[in-house]
Amino acid sequence: MESNKKDIQPLELESRMSFGQLMIRLRTVLILIALAIIFTILKPKFMNPRNLMNMIKRMSYVAITAFGITFVMTLGGLDLSGGSIAALTGVGLAYMLSKGVSLAIALPVVLVLALIMGLINAVIVVEGKIAPFLTTLATMNIYRGIALTLTAGRTVTIKAKGFTDFFGNGKVFGQVPIPILITVFFLVVCWFLYSKTKLGFYCRCIGGNEEAAKVAGINIRAVKYITYIFNALLAGFAGLILCSLMNAGVPDIGSDLSMDGISAAVLGGTAISGGVGSIIGTLGGALIMAILNAGLSLLGAQSHVQILVKGLVIIFAVLMDNALKSKTRVQKIK
């Protein structure tokens, strides 16, 4: 025991990271770079800034949804209803505008509506003690059903040009699309909440070990409520971007938004079992999916193939994750 004490110098935080651990840290970036190189070699046009901007813009709403899902998954929960929340938010806005409600009123109303949908998810999960998967599977259908019923399944055109131009197609500095700016804004907010505040920390504690979190006096109910509501708010913003891009409220839009969000989070290293995750990783995950989509369509692949590849990439990422983790176990210190 004495000799042990001498062996182990009191090292500072994170001072020693093996090559393998570094690779785990950077795996999303590595995949991104690899994909970018491959596509550039195959199609030099790929690196065109215009093309890149377009690609990221089309991924903005997925990234925003994925940020919210990262919190929920870290907490040990799951959300399948994000796409429906996005659709109902967009449809609600289009519907109200078509009935002559002013934008200044309709916009806050639909965002509150998104909050309420998150609240409903939270109430069912926390008070009803129903598994998040089942809860949000049900509310996914309920919210979608409301969106479809509201418009009798039809698309409602948004005539508020100022709004759609700004949220969907606007640009600042002549180059950067507004959706990308919004994504960056939420990236910063979510990164801050996740890494620097009690909310993110408690999500990790609860997802890592709910029993221990309870014993430590963490208010588990409050954290779950806040997380599900925040997640729904983000899905609502994703819905606003989507309906602006379409110039319309489309009730059946975003049906794979939640799945893409979950995929992005998983690609970025968020554990489906909870306790582990990162916002930057999720951004990386969303970018990987964006690059894949853009690259494949440049290569002339049909959207069917893109879906197939999306599936393969997720399996590949998780397999690599597991392999790296088992290779770089830290030695036990007695």
Partner: peptide
């Protein structure tokens, strides 16, 4: 392991849970 620690979190986060 069951009620004392969050095993997947770093030591310093565990120490600051309360």
């Amino acid at each position: 392991k069951k009620t004392g620690l969050v095993l997947c979190l770093p030591v310093y986060e565990n120490v600051n849970m309360v």
